[in-house]
Design a protein around this nucleic acid. Structure first.
Lengths: 334, 334
DNA sequence: GGCCCTGCTGACCACGCTGTCTGCTTTGGC
DNA sequence: GCCAAAGCAGACAGCGTGGTCAGCAGGGCC
């Protein structure tokens, strides 16, 4: 038994091939009578149109690409889930393309992907969003692009994002409201534009509260567990250590927790710890993390939505974040 | 500027279209002279063959599907990384299909995927591996299938797996060697065949050490954090609680840790905790988890390898696991 | 020298669908 | 009641490849 083709459907329905095609593509000018006959035949034969043939004959491939270079399984998983759901709704397919932003072959790889699969659009996540050569290649091919949390050339493509400045401000203000005055900040990788934005939000909240900025309290990290632990150790070693540490990712916050455990500093009694992202990690460590919920799945869904609804037209959409308070933060004692 | 086609290549190289096709597909009967001319033209035009056209004209689509219904981002991420790498090496593409094993549309969804994309093969991960109706649909279509860690019909398809019995035996034996006699076991979801295998390994190690089996020490879980915490609380409440708890996943082990923290039980002094999988979680919680490293990425790579190398021929491959000792286990005190 | 076999190349068609264009029928406005 | 416009259906070409088959050259055999 071989699979049914559009010919089989047209024969069973007693109409022309083109009419079947019209029904499948929801084109105008098909009578209800015809439409019904075709739909019955499709259901009876369990017919599914060949993507290859549609792509070859038509202008669309019904496929979009998701390009990422992000080490966090949680981020990728949720991103895929969001993009994937929107794709399913539109009967599109999603092609995943992991890449390495430091690889010299990056641009060629992306070009080959688009050529081979004839993608209808591209979604990029940070930090690939800010690789100029890759962006240029996409523009050259005039393919619709949506970037998630882009850092540069904000008006160049469609984009979805959260307000990183406000989010960091919210968390900092919350820690201040608990009574903290010396708040350590573990920043993210410099490649991520969001890192700088979060620093801005942090400073903004301090200033509003009339607390002076102390550069010694800022420590660079790489978004990962190790760098969080290292940053915590450096901050604890200060002459006047912080009573709270705000890490720019949950992974780094987990590193801070581990360092505190090792050094016998109890959380949240002696030290408050806050993260960013609300990955599943946040609820799995002990104590569970106060953090900023970043709606990664929704960002993915929105990115796919922009691509499918607007195509080349440039649109942008900002999604809300949320402050999630859990057990890792408390008022400083004394 | 539109993309180059095989026609352009043939014109530039001064040969027929078919000869270009032969070079691309590494067919026999092409002289070195011709091959070189074609390769130069391909490079000069930066030509990439259209997947759609190849699929339509030929018997292969150069695409394989990865079907999963697994809630763990870490598992999926690494699985994809392994399969993806092997695909890249073979210039194949990987189509991700998340699914819901409880959905009535499961079989239709899988059928539609294969029909639409004309996949050359399918990789399945647990628990989809053991859904009889889905397997039957794949057999009906005579499509090559590789299952990862299948639980049923072991000889029906190609498969890759680790020795779950031995792995659980190894961990249990290790805990016994530390001096533990009462060892709690938090099993996994009943849908996963591996859960039963791990119980077998646990019993096997106990028996070899001459320790009696106590059913009260076995507690069912769902592989997730919550059920791990709940199981730990139940086990602590026993008249004679365990001195060690072996959880069938790192997530559940993290739940055990959290419950212990909440109840003021120190790990590993008063309680040893062991996990399974060696996900990145294992190193992020405190104390870091003693666990069994399951080579998920390698399993994915091997699965894709079997598919690409052997096609319909049934092959199986067992990969090694490894006992990873970290800070969450120690000798029982007293 | 005629034969077949192997190595190599190209002409041509088919794959399953969409885009275009043609032509017929119905509707609506005066 | 006539004509233009809108509604509708189908014939046909072509998308960019791979498969089939025919054809040609050269070498080894009888």
């Amino acid at each position: 038994m071989t699979r049914a083709t559009i010919k089989d459907v047209s024969r069973v329905a007693g109409v022309s091939i083109k009419t079947v095609s019209r029904v499948l593509n929801k084109e105008r000018y098909v009578s209800d009578d015809m439409r019904q006959k075709v739909e019955e035949a499709v259901a009876r034969l369990n017919y599914h149109p060949s993507l290859a043939a549609r792509t070859l004959a038509g202008r669309r491939s019904f496929q979009i690409g998701l390009i990422h270079d992000n080490p966090s399984p949680y981020y990728i998983f949720n991103m895929q889930a969001g993009v994937g759901q929107r794709c399913r709704e539109a009967n599109f397919r999603m092609i995943i393309q992991p890449c390495d932003i430091n690889s010299p072959g990056l641009v060629d790889d992306i070009g080959a992907l688009i050529d081979q699969a004839q993608l209808d659009g591209i979604i990029m996540t940070p930090p690939v969003t800010d690789v100029g050569t890759a962006l240029a290649e996409l523009f050259r091919r005039k393919i619709p692009v949506v970037r998630v949390q882009p850092g540069t050339d904000l008006t160049a493509t469609s984009a979805v994002y959260i307000d990183n400045v406000q989010a960091a401000d919210d968390m900092t203000a919350y820690l201040i409201s608990l009574g903290h005055r010396r708040i350590g900040l573990v920043t993210g990788h410099a490649n991520y534009f969001a890192s700088g934005q979060r620093l801005t939000g942090y400073r903004q909240a301090l200033q509003r509260a009339g607390i002076g900025f102390d550069a010694a309290l800022i420590h660079p990290g790489q978004f990962d567990f190790q760098s969080g632990a290292a940053a915590a150790e450096a901050l604890f070693a200060l002459p006047e250590p912080p009573t709270a540490i705000f890490a720019s990712s949950d992974e780094m916050a987990a590193g801070v927790l581990a360092a505190a455990h090792r050094m016998g500093i109890s959380v949240p009694d002696q030290l408050s710890v806050a993260g960013f992202d609300d990955t599943d990690l946040a609820q799995v460590v002990w104590p569970s993390l106060t953090t900023i919920r970043q709606p990664i799945r929704d960002l993915g869904y929105a990115a796919a939505d922009l691509l499918l609804e607007f195509g080349e037209t440039i649109e942008r959409r900002q999604l809300p974040h949320e402050l999630i308070v859990r057990g890792s933060t408390a008022a400083p004692k004394g």
